[in-house]
Nucleic acid binder design. Sequence first.
DNA 1: CTGGATCCATGTTGATACTG
DNA 2: CAGTATCAACATGGATCCAG
Lengths: 126, 126
Amino acid sequence: MTNVASEKVFEETAESCGLIRDVLALIGEKWSVIVLDQLRDGPLRFNELRRAAAPVTQRMLSGSLRGLERDGLITRTVYPTVPPKVEYELTEAGRALNSLVYGVAGWADRYLPTVTASRTSYQETR
Amino acid sequence: MTNVASEKVFEETAESCGLIRDVLALIGEKWSVIVLDQLRDGPLRFNELRRAAAPVTQRMLSGSLRGLERDGLITRTVYPTVPPKVEYELTEAGRALNSLVYGVAGWADRYLPTVTASRTSYQETR
DNA sequence: CTGGATCCATGTTGATACTG
DNA sequence: CAGTATCAACATGGATCCAG
C-alpha cells in the first residue's frame, strides 16, 4: 500500500498504514483466527491446537503460530522435558485483537441475512 | 473451515462460521479495505477509486468491487450516459463493516510499538 | 511430541492488450 | 470511461517424509 492519496483510516502514522495491511493479511491467513480463538481460554500445546483447529495441517499450524509469535500476538514457551512440551498463549495484544475479531463475528451474525440474500440475487442476476 | 471442534466465536450458527471466513477473506483481499475506506465520504466513480487507491490495477479493483458488490457491501449504479458513468457507494452493511475495520486501525495504532518490537527481536533471535 | 524440509497442485496477482 | 481477456510470475495450501 503505497501512495494512497487522501488517507482517512490510515492517517494516523505512515507506519500503521503498512501495519494494518500486515495484520489483516495475518488474520486473513487461513488458520490464524481459529488459533487465536482456540487460545482464548488459556494456553494450549501444539497438538491440542492441532486437534482443536482440525483439519489444519502441521505445516500450516506451524506457519500460523510462527506468524502470530513473530507479531507478538502469542507467546511460545518450551518446556525442556522429554517428550518436549510447547505451550502457546495469547499476549495482551493478541487478546485485544481477538476481541476485534469477535466484532467481526458479531457483524457476520447481524448481517448474515443481508449478505446471503445479496449473494443469491447476484448469482441469479449475473 | 470445516470440522472445527469446539467452537466459541463461531458457535452462533453453522452458516456464520463459513461466512466469517469469507468476510475475512474478502477484507483480506489486497484492496477491499482501501476501497471501503475511500467510499466512506460518499460515492465514487471507478476511475476516482482507481486514483484514490493507487497503485491498484484495473483488474484488481474490478475484482474487489465485484466481490464487495456480491456481498452487499457496496452498490453499483450505472448512469447510461456517454461516456458511461458508474458510481459505487457503501451500503449499511458496508458502513458497519467499515467501522469494524477502524477498530483494527485503532488496534494497530495502539499496538504498533509492541508489534514492531516483537518483529525486531524475532528477527534477531532466529 | 514438535516441528522442519520438500514436492506438487492450485489460486492469486500483475502487466498488458483489447472492447463497448 | 469502465471494464474484460489472456498469460506469466508468484504465493499459498496440502501431503508426505524426516529429525531432535
